[in-house]
């Protein structure tokens, strides 16, 4: 379907966002000797091997012990180290929530919690590993910055940016090979939404892998004479409320799109912003209070309605409610 569409963003290559993390970490490590890495027995999956090889004295294998890894990272911060912890999103959040809450967030420690294999696109491993609640858990913590980049290039840029940001960060990325449609030389500004496509009828706020689906949805809507604005919300917290309100003031309705539960996700953050400032129709594209299951990423995104076709439907619904 996408080949016949006139897309505003195109790609020549595909890669997994976790590789963007691995490559970004290596560069951050080269730039700043305070950057250290920790991993709970998933170095290959997190693409942390290159960093480990180049900086063995700054890398700590913790074994399968995520709670301890978070504590060690918090301790490393005290003398000014910048620890990047790596494990799956599930084990980076729910499994260690209290450790993050007390030793990292409440203690305002400069830990970068880097979480791969988030969401349904993990695929065949099934619901035990497909966390869809992590953004909500992390954004509720005071002091925490929450970032969910959309492709390899943006993930790499985000990884390097958080090394220079003082304070705890949750960085979420994934496993599937995904189109690279954002520029390699982009400057990643934490908390600053990126308006990718101008439009006037409806705004699509998307985060993570679903930004690509939003780009496709825009082209599909355009074919039907509907002008959609696409905004890339790579930073869930702090949320760029100004960009959101400015866009919705123009379009009058919106869709949120994310690989996460409705509850606690990007959609909820946008809804809060709108309801307090400029109530407008908002439709959610996300997972509606259920766990995932095994399948290929494409099959799962289709079954759970997390694709361009469903963003189009949601946009039309939002338009009808104007």
């Amino acid at each position: 379907m996408e080949k016949t569409l006139d897309l505003k963003f195109n790609y020549t290559d595909k890669k997994d966002t976790r590789s963007g993390f691995g490559d970004g970490l290596l560069e951050a490590g080269r730039k700043n000797p305070n950057v250290v890495g920790l991993c709970a027995d998933l170095i290959g999956s997190l693409k942390m091997g290159a960093f480990q090889k180049e900086f063995p004295e700054r890398f700590f294998q913790t074994g399968i012990a995520e709670a301890n890894m978070i504590g060690i990272a918090a301790g490393l911060c005290i003398s000014g180290k910048i620890p990047f912890t790596g494990t799956f999103a599930n084990f980076s959040t729910g499994r260690v929530y209290d450790q993050i809450r007390q030793s990292v967030a409440y203690s305002d420690k400069n830990v970068k919690i880097c979480a791969s294999h988030a969401g349904l696109t993990l695929g065949e491993d099934g619901a035990t590993h497909q966390i869809l609640e992590d953004l909500g858990m992390m954004k509720m913590l005071p002091h925490m910055t929450v970032i969910n980049p959309c492709d390899y290039n943006q993930t790499k840029a985000a990884t390097m940016a958080i090394a220079e940001h003082e304070g705890p960060v949750y960085l979420r990325f994934g496993r599937p090979v995904w189109p690279i449609f954002t520029p390699a030389d982009q400057k990643f500004e934490i908390g600053k939404a990126w308006k990718m496509i101008d439009g006037k009828d409806v705004t699509i706020f998307a985060t993570g892998h679903l930004v690509w689906e939003a780009v496709i949805a825009e082209a599909m809507l355009r074919e039907e004479g509907i002008s959609a604005e696409v905004i890339n919300i790579h930073t869930i917290k702090p949320l760029d409320e100004e960009a959101i309100l400015e866009s919705v003031a123009k379009t009058g309705c919106a869709v949120s799109a994310e690989e996460h539960q409705y509850n606690g996700g990007l959609g909820d953050s946008i809804a809060q912003t709108l309801i307090r400032n400029n109530p407008a129709p908002l439709e959610y594209v996300g997972v509606d209070d259920s766990f995932g299951e095994s399948g290929t990423p494409t099959q799962l995104l289709e079954k759970y309605g997390l694709n361009a076709a469903n963003i189009v439907k949601a946009a039309k619904k939002a338009l009808a409610r104007k």
Binding site: A67, G71, I72, A73, G75, C77, I78, Q102
Partner: peptide
């Protein structure tokens, strides 16, 4: 249960 991990991290730093 968290302080030993933190202290170890500080010691490694």
């Amino acid at each position: 249960g968290q302080g030993l991990s933190v202290a170890i991290g500080a010691a490694q730093a």
